[in-house]
Amino acid sequence: MAYFQALPSPERSRLFTRVFQLAPGSGDDPLKGHLQTVDITSPPFPYEALSHHPGLANDPSAFLWIQNHAVPIRPNLEAALLALRDPEQPRALWVDALCINKDDVDEHSRQIRDMSVIYKQASRVIAWLGSKTEGMDLAFELAHRLARIREVEDEQDRLSEVPVDSESREEVREVFLHGLSPENLHQLHQMFRRPYFTHYWCVVEVMAAADVIVKSGDLEISFNDIGPSLSSAAQANATPQQDSPLEVWWKRPRAAGDDALLSLG
């Protein structure tokens, strides 16, 4: 591809990749940017790594501009870049679909091999669930509140010299779940049915990262904050098939606050 410059050969303590500098813009401004080669073991500037479901091969193509070349991208990536684009400042992103020359077999294999380093070195990883749909705000609201329950219960355990009784736990849950309904729980389950949570590479990318935020449209939450609900929601849906990506999330040890989901069922 004409807009790719060959990466330097890897050295003993240096690994090279490209970072996409997403140009600022808003509204109907076309998506555009340029690629910059960096040593990923010591990046010269902070960058974020995008974790997203690639979509289907037969999805219609959108386009962005890289070094004055029109590059086809799938709609889910287009939606992510539009949501992440800053109106005034460029944004440094590592995106596999843009930063790897897949026509170069040797480079492709090296970059796949170095993927864990790329995600580990990122200032943070953005787990893009897809565009915001009706009810997604209800799912995020419940996830936020379950995370706060976990924090309070963890603090109770830390300060108490004896095990905290179930009545005290229930009081905390009643406070934080006040005003919510079974629809919040339904929408949370729907969120975990999104393709993102059944894609192997998404699991690998999140596991490698030091800091992960989850985004859908303009909604945002720490990946740590969906922990109290992830395994419980997966179990409530159905036991996933053995060796499926969802099984990794489902087997996550239950955390404080998980049982609070039952009161909304």
Rank of each mutant, 00 (worst) to 15 (best):
L7K: 01
M207E: 09
I118P: 02
G55A: 07
G265S: 12
L264C: 14
R173F: 04
R150P: 11
V214I: 13
D218P: 07
H34Q: 02
T239G: 02
I40N: 05
E151P: 02
L219E: 15
W250F: 13
L142W: 04
D165W: 03
P245V: 08
D106W: 01
A210G: 14
L56S: 12
H144N: 09
H53E: 02
L138N: 09
P253W: 01
H186T: 15
S13A: 11
S116A: 13
I118K: 05
V175N: 06
E247C: 06
F140M: 04
K215T: 15
A79N: 08
N58A: 08
Y196P: 14
T198W: 03
L129R: 01
P60S: 08
N184T: 08
A255T: 14
W250A: 14
Q242V: 10
L188C: 13
A80Y: 00
D258T: 15
H186Q: 15
G257M: 00
S263V: 11
R169C: 09
L77K: 02
D59V: 10
G33S: 10
R148L: 08
V71M: 00
A234K: 09
V162A: 14
L93C: 05
E183C: 05
V105R: 05
E205I: 13
A209Q: 09
L230M: 15
F197E: 08
W65C: 06
E155S: 10
D258P: 00
L219T: 09
Q241V: 13
W94M: 01
D39H: 01
A234N: 13
F4M: 14
S160A: 15
I221K: 07
K120R: 08
E167K: 09
L50R: 05
D225M: 10
H108P: 00
N58E: 05
G27D: 02
G227Q: 09
E155W: 06
S26P: 01
D28H: 00
R85A: 01
A6H: 06
G135A: 08
V71K: 00
W65R: 06
A79G: 06
P72V: 05
E174Q: 12
V117M: 12
A260K: 06
F192T: 15
F223N: 10
E170V: 02
D103V: 00
D104E: 14
P10R: 02
S181C: 11
F197N: 13
V105K: 11
A147R: 04
H186N: 09
A260H: 04
Q36F: 00
A256K: 08
R145A: 03
P10E: 10
A92K: 01
L50G: 04
M1P: 08
N58W: 01
K120V: 00
W128Y: 12
T41P: 04
P182N: 12
P228A: 12
G217I: 10
A147C: 02
D59P: 10
Q5R: 11
F63I: 07
G257I: 02
R150G: 06
V203Q: 09
N237L: 13
Y3H: 14
H52E: 04
H53N: 09
G27S: 07
P245Q: 13
P253G: 08
D258N: 14
Q190N: 15
L64M: 12
D218I: 12
Q67W: 01
Q187M: 14
S244T: 12
Y200I: 04
R254E: 14
I213M: 04
Q241W: 07
